[in-house]
Nucleic acid binder design. Structure first.
Length: 268
DNA sequence: CGGATTTGACCGGCGC
DNA sequence: GCGCCGGTCAAATCCG
């Protein structure tokens, strides 16, 4: 992995193959390299901020579109967005919802349009308990419960997008009280509208955490989940090696800098 | 044979 | 109160 990274990114130093003092890089070159890495770390932080913001905006926009598609049950759905629907004018305004379901999230998955199954592989084990055709969408909606543990309260609804048959919309309710089942490949949720490239494999639970700003965030668990998801990405793991290399070179001179030099890899 | 899926019936909330 | 609709139940069926 490191070798592949070095091939594509020759600017990274291979500490495994050469001791530090034997590298051909001069001190001024090292200083320039460190400056470049710090600049990339800053860019990465900005990139992650934009990704989170884009995902959040998209989820809100998509929710609003579905609300206008169906005038009924608006109050139920708006519980999730924290808005109150005014039936007189058909518009939403901020207000105090009757009941806030704080653990609802939405994940979009690109599938083959010819694939009629309503299956979203997200690393968890689900049992289907119902299927309905809803008014605002000709395609049926499937209802699933988490079957990994009888005490797990998580449910999900899966339905094709009304506007795009190649897009599956999975709505998750609740939070898992266990880890994902092993050996399953998580689906690739889309961080942006139709037609754009999907982001790296991100566990839906993480998307839910990002989207749901009002829920309490268990920072430690979140970090563990993000690490678990990101390490499935080969580009990320390769960049991580480079980042660690950079940290070693940094010799502790930069305190509280927890970001990584991966913007170059992510941009490829 | 046991677990998963299917599918019609039923329930409860909401609008009129 | 009635009808519509989304969500859930549970018996029947399927499948490994």
């Amino acid at each position: 992995m490191e070798k592949a990274l070095l091939q594509t990114n020759p600017q990274f130093i291979d500490l495994n193959s050469k001791p530090m003092h034997e590298t051909s890089m001069q001190n001024d070159e090292l200083i320039q390299e460190l400056s470049r890495m710090k600049w990339e770390n800053k860019k990465l932080n900005e990139l992650l901020t934009v990704v989170c913001r884009n995902y959040h905006d998209f989820a809100k926009k998509d929710c609003a579109e579905e609300l206008f598609a169906s005038r009924k049950r608006k109050s139920d759905q708006l519980e999730n967005s924290g808005h109150i629907f005014h039936s007189c004018c058909g518009e939403c305004s901020p207000g105090r919802p009757r009941e806030i379901k704080s653990n609802t999230s939405r994940v979009h998955v690109r599938i083959d349009p010819s694939d009629t199954s309503l299956i979203v592989k997200d690393g968890y084990q689900w049992r289907k308990y119902g299927q309905k055709v809803t008014r605002d969408n000709p395609s049926p909606r499937a209802y699933y419960k988490c079957s990994h543990s009888p005490t797990c309260p998580v449910k999900k609804k899966v339905q094709r997008s009304a506007g795009d048959a190649s897009l599956l919309v999975a709505i998750y309710e609740g939070q898992h009280n266990h880890r994902p089942s092993s050996g399953e490949v998580p689906a690739t949720p889309l961080r942006s509208p139709v037609g754009q490239q999907p982001a790296a494999n991100i566990d839906p639970a993480i998307c839910r955490r990002i989207e749901n700003e009002e829920s309490e965030i268990d920072q430690q668990v979140l970090v563990e989940q993000m690490a678990s998801s990101l390490t499935r990405n080969h580009s990320f793991t390769a960049a991580l090696v480079a980042a660690i290399t950079g940290r070693i070179l940094d010799d502790g001179s930069e305190e509280n800098d927890d970001s990584f030099s991966i913007s170059r890899v992510l941009s490829e």
